[in-house]
Design a protein around this nucleic acid. Sequence first.
DNA 1: TCATTAAATTGTT
DNA 2: AACAATTTAATGA
Length: 224
Amino acid sequence: MEGKEELRRIAFWADALTDAEAARAMKGIAERQFAAGAYICHRGDRLDYWTGVVSGLIKISAISESGKAMTFAGTGAGGWFGEGTVLKNETRQYDLVALRDTHLAMMNRATFMWLFENSVGFTRFLVHQLNERMGQFIATIEGDRIHDPLARVARNLAWLFNPVLYPNTGKHIEITQEELALLAGVSRQVANKSLLTLEEAGLLVTEHGGITVIDLQRLARYGA
DNA sequence: TCATTAAATTGTT
DNA sequence: AACAATTTAATGA
């Protein structure tokens, strides 16, 4: 009971575990802080941790052959990622960058594998998470062909509101236009104009240091 | 609680 | 990239 409460503070999937499983999970998790702009890991590094964002914002990106940065996904508070890398026991395929001061929870591989093989609740959660991420990656591949920066901003923003990957977030998120620009791989000016356009279309409301989404469905499909 | 200032964020060029 | 305008946060009376 005690370990579960503690785990619940940093992991929304704590409820899927038994008390004993939660206690074991907690023992295998280390918490680390990263400053804004810091690299959490570079492509090719061996990072054998399943990682959760307790607070902050990170970007998952890769450098294409042409040398252009390509963002695969952004993850805000409550998001967990890297299960694919840990399961396959291989090096990271992407760069991880903290876009703002970020607090991470990192579960070591042994604990992750133990939960995967012994906890029904955890395995069920993982399947759900992988399935959802699959859909998002497919959308990402399609999105990379879209050069319209407006659509890129809209999609990146919509990902941050994925209710399955980040169940804690409501319709509001704290993110500056500069941070969103970094995520979408556009300039801050473009992000600013895009947001104003999206606001005019009635899809969202811009605020200071934050955005409230009105129509997530249309936002995710914008330009498609 | 209110006024002043500093810092952060946004809007524009 | 640089600038001005706007909003929030912090400070002290």
